[in-house]
């Protein structure tokens, strides 16, 4: 199975069991490199269907304080793009089979060389890329490289995206469509934005590509209710917050993820 097929297969499997896929985000190198490695392994064990790994960047302008803190820490720990590629390689060598997406800002990737990066990512065992500051308009070249090396380039839509644009982006996005839940930056929020479900239903009508919703999802209840209408639920800042406050971060991450997974399974769709 190539990367795209593996992602497709994963969404098909979760769909078949009537629940949404659970997709945690975690920053490579937070709180330190070995711990983050253990945490990612734990996430896979505890019910992650797909995993998003954050590449740290000095100026993460789509991120709120929590992820900013984690990526700044990772940078202080000396994490580079090369480290991130090796990180995935090591995960694969350790036997991890969960589909992996790298999420990072464009400049480090551009600086590394787009094709060189895509090829290296593919060889390391990455299935897809999510680049929050690269709208489809600027992604033509990267898309070509991704096609060539069988990597999914995932695009994002936001509550401000007009209908015709949603259709256009959905047609270009590969693997799934990343639905940003809020008009805002990443970060756990007490409640989901008021018109989110209307928006998700609207998007559902516009495309058949799997939808995964992220930004601002934190509690098992939120994940469960979102899981009713979309194919995947992404949890990032809340997970990092759990790790940040825990005395035993690996265990805490696992426990938190199991709770999310249980909530998704309890609310199996009719």
């Amino acid at each position: 199975m190539n990367a795209l097929e593996l992602i497709q297969h994963t969404f098909q499997l979760t769909r078949a069991t009537g629940r949404a896929a659970l997709m945690p985000y975690f920053t490579i190198g937070y709180p330190d490199l070995p711990t983050s490695f253990e945490i990612v392994g734990k996430l896979a064990e505890s019910g992650a269907d797909l995993i998003e790994l954050g590449i740290p960047f000095s100026d993460p302008l789509a991120d709120g304080p929590t992820i900013q803190h984690s990526t700044q820490t990772a940078l202080k720990n000396g994490v580079t793009l090369q480290t991130c590629l090796r990180f995935v390689q090591d995960l694969r060598q350790g036997g991890l089979t969960t589909p992996i997406f790298l999420m990072g800002y464009y400049n480090p990737i551009f600086n590394y060389g787009e094709e060189r990066f895509v090829q290296a990512a593919s060889e390391s065992g990455v299935q897809g890329l999510i680049i929050p500051d690269l709208p489809p308009e600027e992604a033509d070249e990267l898309r070509q490289h991704c096609r060539k090396h069988h990597l999914a380039l995932v695009h994002l839509i936001a509550p401000t995206t007009p209908v015709t644009r949603i259709q256009r982006i959905a047609a270009l996005s590969q693997g799934f469509l990343y639905v940003v839940s809020v008009t805002g930056v990443t970060g756990a929020r007490k409640s989901l934005p008021p018109h989110l479900f209307e928006f998700l239903h609207e998007v559902r009508q516009l495309t058949n590509i799997p939808l995964a919703v992220g930004f601002g999802v934190s509690t098992p209840e939120q994940a469960a209710s979102l899981g009713q209408v979309v194919d995947g639920v992404i949890v990032g800042s809340a997970l990092i917050e759990v790790v940040r406050q825990a005395e035993q971060p690996v265990q805490a991450a696992g426990t938190y993820l199991s709770q999310l997974r249980a909530a998704l399974e309890d609310r199996v769709r009719e």
């Binding site: 709208p135 308009e137 839509i157 995206t161 007009p162």
Partner: peptide, 12 residues
């Protein structure tokens, strides 16, 4: 030049 921004800003 160009427009390397998060999607939420593209409509703006």
């Amino acid at each position: 030049g160009g427009q390397y921004v998060p999607e939420v800003l593209m409509p703006a």
